[in-house]
Design a protein around this nucleic acid. Structure first.
Lengths: 211, 211
DNA sequence: CAGGTCATCTTGACGTTGACAAAATAATCT
DNA sequence: AGATTATTTTGTCAACGTCAAGATGACCTG
């Protein structure tokens, strides 16, 4: 109709799919998961309320795609931090952890969404794959750390991976919920750095090539 | 009307408030936060859809009360585990962590709710108080641990409190989201025990009275 | 015990949501 | 060019949360 398609152009047989994903990203970060609405999302993309149906079966399926994208970005965030760190295994691990938390602080609502299994389709292969890939960014450096030490069972390595993921995951959640603000003297990133550092130092002391 | 009030008796001027809270507890654990509905909750309590309004301003306010109750139970869960452990500070800490996780596994939906700040009124004084009390169960034994060691700054103590809370909190979330199931040989509680043990051992090695 | 008052609960309505069906529109293929 | 198909719109539905108004029962005063 009398609708000016400026930049985004060509909705009809342009790609509404990406436009919807973009709109969803914005809506999510603006209003949060709970206030997320398919209709508002369609509105933002400039289409009717039923338009999304052809590209996404469900709200669930839209949000699943959004979450998959978010997992790719958290992976990228961890990689970026690792690239900026020294190649030393401990430093790599520290980088991965900080990248994880940095993403959570940068895109809190996306971070929430990624782990809201009741809102997202965890069976979705794309989501599962991008999730696994993200975890690997954390698991790999743990394995590298332990490879130095033959005496240590693989077992312990997998425990440490769980430990570290739990640590950064919990930290991110608690901080975002405002539960960690008693340490107002440190900002989130600095506090995260110290917590990870302390953990790795303690863990590293149990390894032969400590620090 | 022709409604048989069997056990629960006296709704009118009985306490609907408690009945609603009970119904909400059940509905929450059955269907999850996202599927939680005020109307269904009223249905379970055997009243009309608008009845809750007189006792709770909002869905939000109902869920806030539910969350406050849950915080009291997680506190109780930590206390119970601590009571079963030796009085040694490290064992107390281990107990607190295990109690935290045990609650999350026992009442996963409540655990989710407690930290869903967009669904719950974090300003509510009752909720804030019960939340603070729960955190204290974890913070106190950390402080006790550090009191042994004068050389260590208070600072480090508060870092360790954040660290441990993050650890158990993250573990609970990840496990509930099914992200930790690669270790199928261990059940949740056993895995949690090992993770906490490893953390405390590593941390404890940095203390004078280690282990 | 009568009558009034108030808290409690029900009924009905409104606007909004996600999903579905059917109609309309535009792109593509032959 | 004409038909087929993919895409989008319009309209509808039940269900939701919240509000307003009315009904119901308990309590209190005289």
């Amino acid at each position: 109709m009398a609708r000016t398609r400026t930049a985004d152009k060509a909705y009809h047989h342009g790609d509404l799919r990406s436009a919807l994903l973009e709109a969803a990203d914005g809506l999510l970060e603006d209003r949060g998961v709970e206030a997320f609405t398919l209709r508002e999302c369609a509105r933002r993309a400039g289409v009717s309320h039923a338009a999304p149906a052809h590209h996404f079966k469900d709200v669930r399926s839209l949000l699943t795609a959004v979450a998959a994208g978010a997992f790719q970005r958290i992976t990228a965030s961890m990689r970026a931090c690792k690239a900026a760190a020294s190649p030393d295994p401990l430093a790599q691990l520290q980088g991965a952890g900080e990248g994880y938390i940095a993403f959570a602080l940068r895109e809190p609502q996306h971070f929430y969404l990624m782990f809201r299994c009741s809102v997202v389709d965890t069976e979705d292969p794309e989501l599962a794959a991008s999730g696994r890939e993200a975890f690997l960014e954390l698991e790999r450096p743990v394995a590298a750390l332990h490879r130095v030490d033959d005496a240590m069972a693989d077992d312990e390595g997998s425990i440490d991976a769980v430990l570290l993921w739990s640590l950064v995951h919990g930290f991110a959640h608690l901080y975002l919920d405002g539960r960690l603000s008693q340490r107002a003297d440190l900002d989130a990133a600095a506090l995260a750095e110290r917590v990870i550092q302390r953990t790795l130092a303690a863990l590293g002391a149990n390894l032969p090539a400590g620090r």
